[in-house]
Design a protein around this nucleic acid. Structure first.
Length: 283
DNA sequence: ACACGACCCTGTTCGC
DNA sequence: TGCGAACAGGGTCGTG
């Protein structure tokens, strides 16, 4: 499900219920998701106070007073939602655990945080906060696309000589961290670049446009609470609404919205994943 | 180093 | 209507 905007939306929604509060109880309802949970996860969570919620790429990092960090990835179908009470927001009331509720955190202040993930491609791990960035899943990630380290010059350096299509390159988390299948297609349409173009054959000028397009589309999507297709919910349970602003994703056969274009949006498959683009606007 | 396919798992949608 | 195939926003790993 969740690309950077959805994960950031979830992180923001969890802040009122979690930051500054202790985890009173951790109900670990199975032994693994994609990978086994870390040893004694329940004991290591219970009693710890949440200091801060951070995000890196599509990962949520929960820094604890125990100097450990709970690392969370939502995979394709993961949700984290809050029930009960938290200051300033309306939440659904507590209910009995439902199918695929794998981890439930009882927070100080009568909020519960539930991790639900039908496909179980998500993950959770506990690591020392001091070394969290060097976790094997984080250490090779490229720059944050909304941060200062992401720019056209360094992107050009990474793409130089690459013959893979630019769409596939944008999904490579070592080049830029946090884009997924939706926003890769959307950013390329905004930049007027064909998803089929060889990554190493894009001019510096056009790469600058692409960098700006990536930043814009991600920022707008965060503002809209992410995109809700099937699984995504904000932590409050609300839907995101950026899917109404898609220009190409899942719009095969519909007319391109670019003024005076109207060309039928195409769907192709690259590296086994659907890509949507306008054959006229994107070259 | 790079590029591609298989795989992990369940739920929903599509085509016959 | 029923049923199997295809597909879905994630990432890792092994192969060539």
């Amino acid at each position: 499900m969740p690309e950077l905007p959805e994960v950031e939306t979830v992180r923001r929604g969890l802040v009122p219920a979690m930051e500054g509060r202790r985890i009173l109880a951790a109900d670990i309802r199975r032994a693994d998701l994609r990978w086994p949970f870390p040893p004694r996860m329940r004991d290591r969570l219970e009693g710890a106070r949440v200091k801060q919620l951070r995000r890196r790429s599509k990962y949520i990092l929960v820094d604890l007073s125990s100097d450990e960090t709970l690392l969370i990835h939502l995979g394709m179908s993961g949700r984290m939602t809050v029930s009960g009470q938290a200051p300033g927001i309306f939440l659904r009331p507590h209910s009995l655990p439902e199918r695929h509720d794998h981890v439930i955190l009882d927070m100080e202040g009568d909020a519960k945080v539930t991790f639900n993930d039908p496909r179980r491609f998500g993950m959770m791990d506990l690591v020392a906060t001091a070394g969290a960035e060097s976790h094997r899943l984080l250490s090779r990630l490229g720059p944050e696309p909304l941060g200062n380290a992401f720019d056209a010059v360094s992107l050009a350096e990474l793409l130089r000589g690459r013959r893979t299509p630019i769409k596939a390159a944008l999904l490579d988390q070592r080049l830029v961290a946090g884009l997924g299948n939706i926003y890769a297609s959307e950013a390329l349409h905004r930049a007027g670049i064909s998803p089929r173009r060889a990554a190493g054959h894009i001019s510096p000028r056009r790469l600058a446009v692409l960098v700006a397009a990536i930043r814009d589309v991600l920022a707008e999507a965060i503002e809209a609470g992410g995109s809700s297709l099937r699984d995504h919910r904000q932590a409050t349970g609300e839907l995101g609404y950026f899917q109404h602003n898609f220009r190409v994703y899942d719009r095969a056969g519909a007319p391109c919205d670019t003024p005076d274009c109207g060309t039928s949006i195409a769907r192709i498959v690259q590296s086994g994943r659907a890509t949507y683009y306008c054959p006229r606007c994107q070259r």
